[in-house]
């Protein structure tokens, strides 16, 4: 079951503190990196929800984020719908598509599930790439950020937009945690542990997986809307399978099935990418080496490693506090 341990609370507080510090101290480039981390954080939360707690390793979450972005821009820029209504509709469309993908793929497992989601993602990518309505290869522009000047916020200011993204990320995290603590979330975890038994107990496991995949689509859709507002331009590249692959790498790097871990992974991944890019354009090689090291260490990502060390430290402290001294130790102390 999903549990908020003191260590997870501490990690969350540290992450929020670091994001706030960066917001108020960084320059333009630093803020852009922070916003990239925050939006990637939403995408990897969506992926961790299905992969880390439902065993559904998806290679279409990048495409789902792209669907959210394209739906928002189509409704807002092409149709001229109100940006908030466009956002609601875009998120609903993404969730609906995610539910359908989840419903179809939920009957498969393991490598077959991965391949089925990859196929769906690539279908979306190809369609957008070749569709003149959505700008084809050229993408779409003309995007404006939300107008919050009525409450004194100018989202065109990077600092304000970063704070806005942070607030949305916190809301999205609480949403994901609420799902996992609900009956549906507990069923999902039960399905991941033992699907056969869940069926034998009367649970419709297909429906559980499809529903959570749809809910995960809500988060991916929100990430897509914010990604479009961040760069003010969208292109078919957003739906490419490599985006889904990178999200999966981030989830594994951070700690699959921990919710907090993928956020750490997102920060680590983006910072590493930008730092290494300053030295060489082959930053993927460095990320690859780090990923191999993390996987080979048998720890559950960076946060999994921290949790294991913390657990061992707590055990040692408990053992030390309950251990009675041997006669030799008493004599030595005396």
């Amino acid at each position: 079951m999903f549990r908020h341990t003191p260590l997870r609370y501490a990690a969350l507080v540290l992450l929020i503190g670091a994001a706030l510090t960066q917001t108020f101290t960084a320059g333009y480039f630093g803020l852009e990196i922070l916003i990239e981390i925050l939006i990637l954080g939403m995408l990897v939360l969506a992926l961790d929800l299905v992969a880390g707690f439902g065993g559904m390793v998806s290679l279409c979450h990048g495409a789902l984020m792209g669907v959210g972005a394209y739906a928002f821009v189509t409704l807002n820029v092409l149709v001229g719908l109100d940006p908030w209504l466009s956002t609601l509709a875009a998120v609903a469309v993404t969730a609906g598509i995610a539910w359908v993908i989840g419903a179809i793929c939920a009957r498969s497992h393991g490598i077959y599930f991965i391949m089925a989601t990859l196929a769906f993602g690539q279908m979306g990518y190809s369609y957008i790439f070749e569709s003149p309505l959505f700008g084809g290869d050229d993408g779409m522009g003309g995007i404006d950020r939300f107008d919050l000047t009525s409450i004194g916020l100018d989202l065109n200011d990077s600092k304000t937009f970063a704070l806005f993204c942070l607030a949305v990320l916190i809301a999205v995290y609480l949403f994901a945690a609420a799902i996992l603590k609900s009956g549906l979330g507990r069923s999902l975890i039960g399905v991941m542990h033992n699907e056969k038994r869940m069926k034998a107990l009367g649970q419709n496991t297909w429906r559980v997986k499809a529903d959570v995949f749809g809910l995960s689509g809500i988060i991916a859709g929100i990430a897509g809307v914010l990604a479009a507002q961040h760069i003010l331009f969208i292109s078919p590249g957003m739906l490419a399978w490599t985006v889904s692959g990178e999200a999966l790498v981030v989830v594994i790097l951070g700690g699959l099935g921990t919710l907090v871990g993928p956020l750490i992974g997102a920060a680590f991944f983006v910072v590493l990418k930008h730092q290494v890019s300053e030295v060489t354009s082959h930053w993927h090689l460095v990320v690859g080496v780090v990923l191999i090291a993390v996987v080979m260490s048998r720890a559950n990502g960076i946060f999994g490693w921290i949790e294991a060390r913390y657990g061992a430290w707590i055990d040692r402290r408990l053992t030390d506090s309950t251990r009675t001294e041997t006669p030799e130790e008493i004599l030595t102390d005396a």
Binding site: I179, S182, G183, R186, S187, G190, L201, G202, Q203, D211
Partner: peptide
């Protein structure tokens, strides 16, 4: 988990079964 499947709470969102 088994009991909440029986009572129908295991499929609900927003409440801890």
């Amino acid at each position: 988990l088994a009991a909440s499947i029986h009572t129908g709470h295991a499929s609900r969102l927003w409440s801890d079964c």
